[in-house]
Design a protein around this nucleic acid. Structure first.
Lengths: 152, 152
DNA sequence: CGACATTAAATGTATGTACATATATTTGCA
DNA sequence: TGCAAATATATGTACATACATTTAATGTCG
């Protein structure tokens, strides 16, 4: 049993109560998970938000997505999908065309190159994604219930 | 019972398993909590990382802290404490002086103005910090145990 | 029809994150 | 002593976040 408690991770010996500890613990653990993932993406020259947008586009494929749809499905709704798409377009991973039926909107499509890239990444990334596998299924269910309740 | 499940929040109807759902849920909830806090800080012209550094400095007061000590205690250890201190110095909330006993290091001290600011913020911020209060104490304990286990 | 609000996306600006590199000081040891 | 390694911080660059503002297209209602 070599679990590292949050107290030790950030060298703060005492929390006011379990709520404050939970708050810090949640932020810290989420950041920790994201860094694990980001490291796996670096060798494919993708950042985490870029990867997430590509996954949404693959889910839509072969239908296009608009910027609005990307924002709706993104975890961080206030981030700037438009500029992340810029970077993906520059790498040839997505295309942008004005939507014919609504010229305010932009149809964004994933390219073949990006689909192949995702395919190569799938196995590699999945193997590293499962830090949560340290939990039993029951514990994972419990975690989801607690998190949903926090945002109530 | 109007708990909003993560499936609905990001409009993704199906997850592969409870682990994948837990991963997404954790990242999403942490971001949600941080935004709640950031909104409370905005009226005081502080960002969340700036506030966190001020709190660490208050904990040290009247002893100074070095950049190294700030990094040790920060939640995000790879971020750039030096530049956050820049911003705080520009606002007159901290002072920087070369450490006499080790001229490589910098003694960072919180100013009276910052101590007063934190005092004004304490009540305001605490009232908004406790989104986790939707949990019972037992649930908060459970959450902490699960999070520690994930990082094992 | 035409002014006005609404919607979709892009842009501007300040801040922070992530990582590599630079600069200065101190330490260790041949 | 002197020189390489280690330490403490700062700086450079690319990217993302947060929020306000702008631009263009569409809807609506008098």
């Amino acid at each position: 049993m070599h679990i590292m408690r949050i107290e030790d991770e950030i060298k703060q010996p005492v929390f006011k109560d379990e709520y404050q500890k939970g708050y810090i613990n949640l932020i810290y653990t989420a950041g920790w998970l994201q860094q694990q993932q980001a490291a796996a993406f670096r060798e494919f020259d993708l950042t985490l938000p870029q990867f997430n947008i590509l996954r949404i586009l693959r889910g839509q494929h072969p239908k296009p997505a608009t910027v609005n749809l990307l924002i709706e499905r993104m975890l961080d709704k206030t981030s700037n999908a438009s500029r992340i798409v810029d970077k993906l377009e520059a790498k040839g991973l997505v295309t942008r065309t004005v939507c014919p039926s609504n010229r305010r909107a932009v149809d964004i499509r994933i390219t073949e190159a990006a689909l192949e890239l995702l395919l190569r990444m799938d196995t590699e990334v999945l193997s590293k994604q499962h830090n949560l596998q340290t939990l039993t299924v029951e514990e994972a269910v419990q975690l989801n219930a607690l998190l949903d309740k926090i945002r109530d």
